[in-house]
């Protein structure tokens, strides 16, 4: 198996956390995993990008030039990666903040930010995207993902962990 995922959005939308979570969910059963973040010079408000590669074989470079899946959280980021949206690529778009791109990829639209707002916290849109992605491509099981969410947020208060789990499940069912 080989799954190369590009995740991008605005700084502060939890793009890096989303990528890290996906990578750590796969640690137990996918032999080769890389996660690579890159940021703009701004700490907040710039574009945030990360790549996750899940593979049965050794990974030469943590940065790929082609992708099997692309997750996009806002319009500016979408425009940056629109050329990467090839035919065999699955594209998940946060339709609350993005227009649906006219590409040949299979596009799944997720109303992530609005759904997050409905849950009471706009910041959990990233885990709604994760849920929607795993619903479309079950590279890891929902159980593994939820375990990773709990591990990653260990030490935070219970209501925050439950909110994130709820967001993930909302995405999974959307």
């Amino acid at each position: 198996m080989l799954e190369r995922i590009l995740i991008t959005g605005a700084g502060g939308q939890g793009v890096i956390l989303l990528g890290r979570l996906l990578a750590s969910s796969a640690v137990e059963h996918i032999p080769h995993i890389t996660f690579f973040p890159s940021y703009g010079a701004e700490v907040r408000g710039g574009t945030s990008v990360c790549q996750v590669i899940l593979s049965a074989k050794e990974i030469a470079s943590p940065l790929s030039e082609t992708f099997d899946s692309i997750l996009v959280m806002n319009q500016i980021s979408l425009e940056n990666v629109i050329r990467q949206m090839k035919k065999n690529c699955l594209v998940l778009v946060n339709s609350s903040l993005c227009k649906i791109p006219p590409v040949s990829s299979k596009v799944v639209s997720v109303d992530a930010t609005r759904l997050a707002d409905n849950l009471g916290d706009t910041r959990v849109a990233n885990f709604i995207m994760l849920g929607a992605y795993l619903a479309a491509k079950p590279v890891v099981t929902p159980l593994q993902a939820e375990k990773s969410i709990r591990e990653l947020l260990a030490g935070k208060n219970m209501s925050l962990i439950e909110l994130n789990i709820k967001a993930f499940r909302t995405g999974l069912e959307s």
């Binding site: 890290r20 640690v27 080769h32 995993i33 890389t34 996660f35 690579f36 973040p37 943590p62």
Partner: peptide
Amino acid sequence: GRLGQMMEP
């Protein structure tokens, strides 16, 4: 910097 910043198991 690439090996420093990337994550792997």
